[in-house]
């Protein structure tokens, strides 16, 4: 039995469709209810919906053998897992954004508001820039408007939310997409099944052009 942690939401549903096409279907998952765990004994697979940012934890600790997590989460928490495949889904980028008229005054410490404190710290320490991290859990876009921070480090998909708040992306830190991850120990003992899943998902990955 392979345990699969899927991220709740649109991305997770897309990913499930890919698993289904690979022969790991579990029709009960499409029923509208509040259940979180779905099993198809015949196909040897059990799915569960978890918060996207928790997928890596389930996989790292072996509660799930494999899972699908955004590269943002993998960079932020650096879980000890295998990153088997870039699914080329849920594409966006981690970016620095600020008010349109923002100019970085290098005389002062840069105040950075973000959910992704490790990514932000790492990015600025490579640049040798002195920063002050302001950890927020949501509505990051408000921070520069209210003068709480100079810039934000956040995920940018279309840039629409930023635009509506009079902000714009200034620098791209790293492109983001969904990845298939596997627990290191599970990979040893369920190698064949995990490889099969990986290969049939790989055949479905759409390339950009």
């Amino acid at each position: 039995m392979i345990n699969v942690a899927l991220p709740k939401g649109r991305l997770g549903e897309k990913v499930y469709d890919m698993f289904e096409k690979s022969g790991y279907e579990c029709p009960s998952i499409k029923e509208v209810n509040r259940k979180l765990i779905f099993e198809n004994e015949e196909a040897g697979v059990r799915y569960f919906w978890v918060k996207p940012s928790d997928v890596a934890i389930y996989v790292e600790r072996g509660a799930a053998d494999i899972g699908v997590a955004g590269k943002d989460i993998l960079l932020e928490y650096a879980p000890d897992v295998y990153e088997l495949l870039d699914l080329n889904l849920g594409k966006c980028r981690m970016a620095v954004a600020a008010k349109k008229d923002f100019r970085d005054n290098t005389e002062n410490t840069l105040r950075v508001a973000t959910k992704f404190t490790n990514i932000a710290k790492d990015y600025y320490s490579k640049k040798g820039r002195d920063i002050d991290i302001i950890k927020l859990n949501g509505s990051i876009e408000i921070a520069p408007i209210l003068g709480l921070s100079d810039v934000i480090v956040d995920i940018v998909e279309t840039g629409k939310t930023l635009l509506e708040n009079d902000l714009e992306p200034k620098e791209t830190i790293v492109p983001i997409s969904a990845r298939l991850i596997a627990n290191k120990s599970s990979f040893k003992f369920k190698m064949e099944q995990i490889e099969n899943i990986k290969n049939s998902l790989k055949a479905q990955v759409k390339t950009d052009d």
């Binding site: 790292e60 600790r61 072996g62 000890d80 627990n183 290191k184 120990s185 599970s186 040893k188 003992f189």
Partner: peptide, 9 residues
């Protein structure tokens, strides 16, 4: 080394 049912090395 890994043993089954222990999630880490």
């Amino acid at each position: 080394g890994f043993v089954e049912n222990v999630p880490t090395g």
